[in-house]
Design a protein around this nucleic acid. Structure first.
Length: 575
RNA sequence: CGGGGUGUAGCGCAGUCUGGUAGCGCAUCUGGUUUGGGACCAGAGGGUCGGGGGUUCGAAUCCCUCCACCCCGACCA
């Protein structure tokens, strides 16, 4: 490609509404342009990168024996009513009507369509297992789209759905997809991590998310390298801190704590560490009424864990101040476990405390020296809190120094699920087993955020001048920057010749044949992140050399003109 | 959905408080001088000041209303 014939819409200044570096650089490099909130045009530079990602994903899915299909973006309501999600799915499902007032939606995901399709196409166990994928546009009407294509409303996703005779087969395909995803993200040159994930409302046995590690990531991940453990903080098991519960040494004492409502205020007022206090949070119970969730003062409630407790309403609903007043007789800042009239669920660490502080269910009053079993009933013990850095890894034997969790941030670019029969049952997707008996097919589903990968790769690979694409994702592998293309016949013919030769070798090469100053050409090439650059000018040609520079290196090197093709091919194959 | 903010040329912004008919830098176009890290000189084009309504002799500016976009939060797979 010659720049004279290519839309290189680079910007010198950063558009004001771009917050994260990937969004800024994608706009500056002329990869994307906003059409509406969370909806983008992909310009030639951006699309070339997107296609690179798609190609790698496609190659690896094909390699894993998955079959590519293409399903529609617009889906009839009937399918969603059949699965029950027409009512369940919230505002993210963009609904619309056609000219006959029939209901449709823009597909945010394709379980319904694929299950309906396959239930008609697959009849026999002999056709199983089968895995179908597509790379297609999804629409989710996010409440708050942000960060460019990172969290867009319209985006490109690779979604795959597998069908099985039994859960063992599902497990095998799940493992295969796990490996396939690892290969994909490795080939893309990303620094990633597979993490255990919550199965959410879909349920099922197993789920892993694949995260590109980046400080700007929206997810927190708990990691322990010693045990090769990584889990979304939403899920990561929190062990009790501080060993078995000591025996009581203090007596129950009521103390006045006027206007002290937060843990911070109370612990400062009583000159105690927050870890000697508990906080009592009231939420709606699964069967109505309220339930108390008790955590150590310095710990945070994990709502996802809490709503898994059978006594807790799912989804979790906080008690209002009025409900608390009515049930306990005080404001939220003074709730405690002594003589509390609602069921008490305590986090493991809170349950291990002795002689602790809690509210007295009376405004402005707290208890000190509280002990479980003596001053109140033994609580129902449950893992309620989010892990924090320094917590012991749940896999650890407890003897090592390096078995502590650290917290890192990630961008979710892949998610694999064992769905089970949720959709196949709702939509009656069965096949006949070898006894001629109809079996509801267990399913797996496997997603990759293709457009999100592009942004997350930039989050991980950039410098002050622009993008540092991994070679596998670069819009061009090589840029030829002439010095004096329009003045020197030698420069022009050398550049043209190298350009043609490299193209014949299948290299995607950009020849900057604009009549611009070198600084502009260098700046653009660096901005869009072409990994390999050759500069050709009269000065070096007179020495029989051309200049080569790798985008990630500071220094350039002179290469003999007659060996440049082999040199470049060697460099590109190496990467 | 709650809170906050911003809408003026393709991009970045000033002008709004204190009403007088729109400006700067970059980008674009023309001519010239330049040419190894975002040049210089001269000239040119480009804006119903987010939309609608109102006040006024006169509105980018004041008032009402709608919309869009961004940020924080809540929510959500």
């Amino acid at each position: 490609m010659r720049t004279s014939n290519f839309l290189l819409s680079t910007l010198k200044e950063t558009p004001a509404d771009a917050e994260v570096i990937s969004h800024q650089l994608m706009l500056r490099a002329g990869m994307i342009r906003k059409v509406a909130a969370g909806i983008y045009n992909w310009l030639p530079v951006g699309l070339r990168v997107l296609r690179k990602v798609e190609t790698i994903v496609r190659e690896e899915m094909d390699r894993a024996g998955a079959q590519e299909v293409l399903m529609p973006t617009v889906q009839p309501a009937e399918l969603w009513q059949e699965s029950g999600r027409w009512e369940q799915y919230g505002g993210e499902l963009l609904r619309m009507q056609d000219r006959h007032n029939r209901d449709f939606c823009l597909g945010p995901t394709h379980e319904e369509v694929i299950t309906s399709l396959i239930s008609n196409e697959i009849r026999s166990y002999k056709q199983l297992p089968a895995n179908f994928y597509q790379i297609q546009t999804k629409f989710r009407d996010e409440r708050r789209p942000r960060f460019g294509v990172m969290r867009a409303r319209e985006f490109i996703m690779k979604d795959a759905y597998s069908f099985h005779l039994d859960s063992e087969s599902l497990g095998q395909t799940y493992d295969l997809m796990f490996d396939t995803y690892s290969r994909i993200f490795t080939r893309l040159g990303l620094h990633f991590r597979a993490v255990e994930a919550d199965t959410g409302s879909i349920g099922g046995n197993a789920s892993h998310e694949f995260h590109v590690l980046a400080d700007s990531g929206e997810d927190a991940i708990a990691v322990c390298d010693k045990y090769d453990y990584a889990s979304n903080v939403e899920l990561a098991e929190a062990l009790a801190v501080g060993g078995p519960r000591p025996s009581a040494t203090q007596s129950l004492t009521k103390v006045d704590t006027p206007d002290q409502t937060t843990i911070e205020q109370v612990s400062r007022f009583l000159k105690l560490d927050a870890s000697n206090t508990v906080k009592t949070l009231l939420v709606h119970g699964a069967e109505g009424g309220l339930v108390a969730l008790v955590l150590r003062g310095d710990h945070e409630l994990n709502e996802i864990k809490a709503q898994k407790h059978p006594l807790v309403a799912d989804p979790l609903v906080w008690a209002t101040d009025d409900e608390i007043k009515h049930a306990v007789g005080c404001a939220p800042g003074s709730i405690g476990v002594v003589e509390l009239s609602v069921p008490v669920i305590a986090d493991r660490s809170a349950a291990n405390l002795a002689d602790f502080v809690c509210g007295a269910n009376e405004d402005g009053v707290h208890y000190t020296g509280v002990n479980w079993g003596r001053d109140c009933a033994e609580p129902d013990v449950f893992d309620l809190r989010s892990v924090v850095a320094g917590d012991q890894c749940a896999r650890a034997d407890g003897n090592g120094e390096d078995d502590q969790l650290s917290i890192t941030r990630g961008i979710e670019v892949g998610h694999i699920f064992q769905l089970g029969t949720k959709y196949s049952e709702a939509m009656n997707a069965t096949c006949l087993d070898n006894n001629g008996k109809a079996v509801v097919m267990p399913m797996g589903c496997y997603g990759i955020g293709v457009s999100r990968i592009v942004a997350s790769a930039i989050e991980q690979n950039h410098d002050s001048r622009g993008i540092l694409w991994p070679d596998s994702m670069a819009p061009f592998q090589l840029v030829i920057t002439p010095i004096g293309y329009h003045k020197s016949e030698a420069v022009k013919s050398t550049c043209d010749s190298l350009y043609t030769t490299m193209q014949e070798h299948g290299i995607e090469v950009l020849l900057d044949d604009r009549n611009e100053r070198p600084g502009i050409m260098f700046a653009d090439a660096d901005l869009i992140g072409v990994p390999h650059r050759v500069v050709i000018g009269d000065k070096s040609l007179s020495n029989g050399t051309v200049e080569y520079k790798y985008r990630r290196n500071d220094a350039a090197e002179d290469v003999p003109q007659n060996g440049i093709v082999e040199f470049l091919l060697d460099r590109m194959l190496k990467n």
